[in-house]
Amino acid sequence: MSAYRTAAGYSLLALAKNRLALILLAVFLPLWITVAKTVATPDLFPFRLRASGEILHAGGDKITMISGSLNAVSLLVGFWMFSAARRTGAFDRRLTAAGYPRGALLAAKLTTLLATATVVSAYAVGWMLLYWRPLQPGLLVLAVLAASLIYGAMGLFLSLFLPGEVEGMVAIIMISIIDLAPQNPVAATTANNPLITLLPSYGSLQTALQAGFTHRLTITPLANSLAWLAALSTIALAAFFRHTRTHPAPTTRRSGPVHAYRKR
């Protein structure tokens, strides 16, 4: 328990020292939501909610705000997690080789991801509530949280093979554009194409649109989010275990663990 608490505490502390991410959180996220609200037209816009098949009418500014906030939290949490994973990769390996419980370290990483995604999502929805009253605010938080978690896990996943923060950031931006742009019911003519159900943010956008403009709850789109989250997390966690294993020589004999328990 102490191993988990210490690792989680230090991990969150280190995350809170990422100045660029904090600036993005404080400035970029509210700016994006504000710009979406003020620049996009408030005219009602008809679109078909794929999750339920019904036709809804909603203000273009509100739809753009939902889409923009999903985009902003995705980029921010993805970058934050990528940056943290790149920073600690070699150190985690040394720490586990020295005997640090891998399960505790892993649980600490998941806690960090969940805490970051929750804070960022609540903050983003808080800003949206300044401009607009969605019909189901709780569901909106859940939808934004799903996007944050997926992109956070994607940050961990991308850190496995991309060398630096610039590469990670560019990759996350490109993925987010490819993910969200074709789904936007205001801007895209592709929003009705069945292939969009396969995109990482499909579940979040559909759930957020439901939360904003209906009193109903269709949870099917969140199954898509859950599948993405499970797949990316599983790959990232498997890679963590692979990365932190030790390599005894083919016929190595050791009298104990590499860095064994030592009573003093």
């Binding site: 390996r93 005894p248 020589a249 083919p250 190595t252 860095h259």
Partner: peptide
């Protein structure tokens, strides 16, 4: 140190091990 796998051979270390890598990790 066990940080890297060998293609062949054996290593026997009798006791606890400390490893200081070349660059600070």
């Amino acid at each position: 140190s066990g940080d890297l796998g060998a293609d062949a051979g054996a290593v026997h270390i009798d006791g606890t091990l400390g490893y200081c890598p070349q660059y600070p990790v």
